[in-house]
């Protein structure tokens, strides 16, 4: 694990350095003197060769210090840390919503294959991904915040309010739903197609032949085996939980990790980007582990040597 981790940090550092764009240039305001610019470059350590910077950074990391953001001067741990909870709220809710919708609809579509319900589900799922997220967000705002006035346009809390649970929930509904649209669509398709796959397998046919009720066949035999790709998907989405959703966060003024990432990229804020990459790497590893464990639970045949 450690060599992989080191490899990722080396690679990220290299990629960042080779990506065009100068972090100091991004922080210059018109009329700033050349001397002020040089001071900044020195303070960021950018006057030194890459390998020196990397070794220094690694040394600090070993002591638990992720460095300071170029653009704000705040510690990276603080900049990244303050986004964890809002990000989890948004992506967690969206993920939950998409599974809650995706699994039953997918099963239904598979059971009633090539029926009106199936077609409707198909067209709706693809409608959700045929328009870009920023546009879906606007559609959501237009309908629910402007025309119906049921929900606030954006933000996580009412200005001047104390940000209570209900208030938070109220602000969460729209962005989480917009984010869940695409997710639910994808899950529906995976569930539907692997259900169909599994329903053709011998053991399901045997179960049917035994005279087992259709519901039982579905639930006990088909569904469980159809979950493999869904589990993989969930494993893949664990890092995405914290990676956040760039566009949705921007449209809805949500202080999430996606926005931080894009801000950091736009300003070439290397320390913040390295911090984000490290967290992502750890989460990817955790996601894999959980998915592999879940396979074994869903399908006892899977074992590891």
């Amino acid at each position: 694990m450690v060599p992989i981790f080191l490899g990722i940090t080396v690679l990220s550092y290299l990629i960042l350095t080779l990506t065009p764009g100068d972090p100091v240039q991004m922080l210059i305001s018109p009329g700033q003197s050349a001397e002020d610019v040089a001071i900044k470059r020195r303070a960021f350590g950018l006057d030194q060769p890459v390998y020196v910077r990397y070794v220094k950074w690694l040394g600090e990391l070993a002591r638990g210090n992720l460095g300071y953001s170029f653009s704000t001067g705040a510690p990276v741990t603080k900049r990244v840390g303050e986004r964890i909870v809002p990000t989890l709220k948004l992506t967690g809710a969206a993920l939950l919503l998409s599974y809650l919708i995706g699994i039953p609809v997918g099963v239904l579509a598979a059971a009633k294959r090539y029926s009106a319900i199936d077609y409707l589900a198909t067209v709706l799922t693809f409608l959700g991904i045929s328009l870009p997220t920023f546009f879906l967000g606007l559609v959501g705002i237009y309908i629910f915040a402007l025309r119906l006035q049921w929900l606030p346009v954006s933000g996580t809390m009412t200005l001047g309010g104390d940000g209570g649970f209900l208030d938070g929930l109220h602000h969460l509904v729209l962005p989480a739903s917009v984010l869940a649209v695409a997710g639910a669509g994808i899950i529906t398709r995976y569930v539907r197609s692997s259900m169909l796959e599994v329903m053709g397998q011998d053991y399901v046919r045997t179960a049917r032949a035994k005279g087992l009720a259709e519901v039982l066949v579905m639930r006990r035999h088909a569904l469980r085996n159809a979950l493999i790709p869904v589990i993989t998907l969930a494993g893949l989405q664990i890092p995405a939980l914290l990676a956040g959703a760039v566009i949705t966060e921007q449209v809805f003024e949500w202080p999430g990790m996606g926005r931080l990432t894009i801000e950091a990229i736009n300003q070439r804020d290397y320390p913040v980007l390295m911090g984000i990459t490290i967290i992502a790497a750890v989460l990817v590893a955790i996601g894999n582990l959980l998915a592999d464990m879940a396979y074994a639970v869903a399908d006892p045949r899977i074992h590891y040597e």
Binding site: I4, G7, I8, L11, S12, I15, L16, L18, T19, P20, G21, L236, P239, A243, T261, I262, I265, L273, I276, T277, A280, A281, V284, A285, N288
Partner: peptide, 18 residues
């Protein structure tokens, strides 16, 4: 895992320069 760990945008910007 390594591929999945990077923010895709960084990879894209890197690709642009390459």
């Amino acid at each position: 895992d390594v591929m999945l760990s990077f923010p895709p945008l960084i990879i894209i910007l890197f690709a642009v320069s390459v």
